[in-house]
């Protein structure tokens, strides 16, 4: 039989799709635009809610991909899906019997929220920067000192008309809680504040982690969105919010402001969308054929989806979709 399936994107969703396809007797090829597989997880230190090292999850997947003898083309970008396969950016056409789109999401560019001064003020960071600091093993201000007071701001680049991102990115509330706890673990005498509008703890163990952050880690949750930040003479960050539960404006100076950046639709969606059954939501994420029964299917019988290409998801959900997509693909090819 030996039917060939192109898997676009070698993140966790793409790797799992390829693994299951291979188990089902099909021949997957992963095409990944970066130099290595792994997607965003290459940047993350430990994963919520279990604090499992991201490298552990990736190592397992990569090892199995290599053991299964799956072909992986790295440093190649898919530019177009066609009726017979895909076309790479360099013009190479690859024929295949089905395509799995696993191109993931993009991280919101925090410089677009100018009022928070990311890229302008010294000590304004994003959750992505913080993961990098965790990987280096220390959380430091630009001058090399340990921060004594850290504020996290939820919903940066999500739920915000002003940057055309209406959706909730789902995983960032729990990321904010996880990182607040990690900062406290590394710097126990630091004061940590999370400014939120709603706490969306959708996954198993998430609400429990939130409670633990409150009562074991003394993290202070303040319900109000920071309206603006400014840099003080000593290069700290002054922030303004309303403490909406008290009904009064609040201001404070922190050593570090961490913007909890959202997940936006991947740039590939726009390019791959509009043909071969790939339809986009207004948010830019791909729209599955049906939200209940055909979550991993596109409008075309030979194009499938898995992972965050269709909506913000956590790692477990993305991996599960890889299994589901591979199963649907095998049903289609063995029909």
């Amino acid at each position: 039989m030996n039917k060939k399936v192109v898997v676009i994107g070698g993140g966790v969703a793409g790797m799992q799709t390829a693994l299951t396809l291979s188990e089902l007797g099909l021949t997957p090829v992963i095409i990944e635009k970066e130099a290595s597989t792994g997607g965003k997880l290459c940047k993350w230190h430990k994963l919520f809610p279990t604090l499992t090292p991201a490298s552990e999850v990736l190592d397992g997947l990569r090892r199995r991909v290599s053991e299964a003898g799956i072909e992986v083309m790295t440093g190649r970008t898919v530019g177009r899906i066609t009726d017979s396969g895909v076309e790479l950016e360099d013009g190479t056409a690859l024929a295949c019997d089905a395509t799995a789109v696993c191109t993931g999401f993009d991280i919101f560019d925090a410089t677009l929220k100018e009022e928070y001064g990311y890229g302008m003020y010294d000590n304004v960071f994003t959750t992505v920067d913080l993961e990098e600091m965790f990987n280096r093993g220390e959380v430091r201000m630009v001058n090399g000192e340990k921060p004594r007071r850290v504020a996290f701001l939820h919903c940066v680049g999500s739920r915000d008309e002003k940057v055309n991102q209406r959706h909730c990115s789902r995983v960032c509330c729990i990321t904010g809680v996880k990182q607040a706890m990690e900062v406290k673990q590394m710097i126990p005498d630091a004061e940590v504040f999370n400014f939120y509008m709603d706490m969306r703890m959708f996954g198993p163990g998430y609400e429990e982690m939130y409670r633990q952050a409150q009562y074991e880690y003394n993290i202070q949750f303040i319900r109000g969105r920071i309206s603006e930040a400014s840099q003080t003479i000593d290069r700290r960050v002054q922030i303004k919010a309303e403490d909406t539960l008290v009904g009064r404006p609040l201001k404070m100076t922190v050593d570090m402001l961490v913007l909890i950046v959202g997940m936006k639709a991947g740039a590939s969606n726009e390019r791959l969308g509009g043909c071969c059954g790939v339809d986009l939501y207004p948010s830019g994420f791909v729209r599955p054929a049906d939200q209940f029964l055909r979550n991993v299917c596109s409008g075309s019988e030979r194009v499938f989806y898995a992972g965050t290409v269709s909506a913000p998801k956590n790692v477990g959900e993305s991996i599960n979709e890889g299994i589901a997509a591979a199963y649907k693909i095998s049903r289609y090819l063995n029909r």
Binding site: M197, D198, G224, R225, I226, S227, A241, E242, T244, P249
Partner: peptide, 8 residues
């Protein structure tokens, strides 16, 4: 959504 940005 009662975020308080206006008041802040």
């Amino acid at each position: 959504i009662g975020c308080g940005s206006c008041t802040a």
